[in-house]
Design a protein around this nucleic acid. Structure first.
Lengths: 213, 213
DNA sequence: CGGAGTATTGAGTACTCTCAATGGAAGTGG
DNA sequence: CCACTTCCATTGAGAGTACTCAATACTCCG
């Protein structure tokens, strides 16, 4: 596994605090989707908003999450190029989404979906496949959370995310400790400690160049 | 919440140990789906098998799960009437499925799916909706697992499952402690202790008739 | 050279897990 | 009809792990 730390380091630069621009998809449009770019940390949509659009990642990484009752953030997923996110059963978004890195996404109109699927065979297959893949990823997430020890969670997570990143040619994956923690339901400190421990055991390399597990 | 224990009690009768009949869908057939009934505990499909079919619950409850490396069982979901399960991105089932209670299910041919969706507008909407709903449920599961304390997990789980059961008119939900435990990533003992504690606090009623939380 | 944000590390606490024993309900067979 | 078996639930005790609080270090940036 390429250490998750790698990217972290040389990506500190483009920092983003609060989301700024909130407008729905803008810019050019293909027949079926509107392209949009977001900066690191920039808001895409927020929990509770009307889900007029769902999205597909073209480049970069998007993070979806929700804030739990106790104020903790639960990250629902990291979405890499090719992944679909924000397609809801209800009329409102259950999660918030923002850029983990700078990203390009395509927005599809939710209301038009049925019409589009009727007309367009290729798109139908694509959407169906994307949905099932998304389902797969969420199920993976469940299995991850089902592991008992922090070490196991983190090991499997690193393998999994590294695999996905390489598969999608994504080298820019600026995960912070808190991202991993909030994804796996651990505390930042535990993530830090565990990574340190894994590094000491030579299982991973922290901070250097990418290398194998 | 109607206590999960209720159903447990008056459902002990039909016990089932290992799965027996393994054959794919049998019996009558509509144009698009093959109906099948399973007994409590009876195998529907097993992890690793070719995913020639996916299923929809007509009546009863189905449980999907996988066995983790350490031998523990992680339950992926409880599927109530109307729910779809077993639709895979790959060619093989990632989970095993068996009846939590006696159940009737309809099997759909996976390979025929594309053709069916092309021809049948109604079915397409149905499948799409079912998929998104399934995604929702898995995301709920993630949020459940993301909670920090056993008490919170169990409280939210009971609320959630009770809501779903009532919505689908399901009164027969023979959940054991181990089912809850394996779904939430807890030990049986912790589930038992927590339920006892909740009962003492008057939050739930154990073993009696259904009642509100 | 501060300042902000993040990562690391330590100490103590709290929670859940594991191991183990007991109790209860249901089914089996004499 | 009752012993016997089996499975599940409950409860206790002790151990281990992750959490919280807290202080310190590091990196990038203005």
């Amino acid at each position: 596994v390429g250490s998750a730390k790698d990217n972290l380091v040389h990506l500190f630069g483009p920092r983003a605090a609060g989301g700024v621009s909130a407008e729905p998809p803008a810019v050019d449009a293909g027949a079926v989707g509107l392209s949009r770019t977001v900066r690191r940390g920039e808001r895409i949509f927020t929990e509770g908003e009307t889900a007029d659009f769902f999205y597909k990642v073209v480049s970069g990484v998007v993070r979806t999450y929700t804030i739990l009752d106790d104020g903790r953030r639960q990250i629902a997923g990291f979405h890499l190029p090719g992944d679909v996110f924000g397609l809801e059963a209800g009329t409102h978004h259950r999660f918030s989404a923002n850029g983990l890195s700078a990203a390009t996404i395509v927005a599809y109109s939710r209301p038009d979906l049925d019409t589009l699927l009727e007309a367009n065979n290729a798109l139908r297959k694509q959407v169906l496949t994307s949905l099932v893949l998304e389902l797969d990823r969420v199920q993976d997430h469940v299995l991850l959370l089902g592991h008992k020890t922090a070490r196991e969670k983190i090991e499997v997570f690193l393998l999994c995310i590294a695999e996905r990143a390489s598969r999608s040619q994504t080298s820019n994956l600026p995960l912070q400790r808190s991202d991993i923690a909030d994804f796996l339901g651990l505390s930042r400190e535990t993530v830090s400690r565990t990574l340190t421990q894994l590094a000491c055991n030579g299982i991973i390399e922290v901070k250097g160049r990418p290398n194998e597990r």
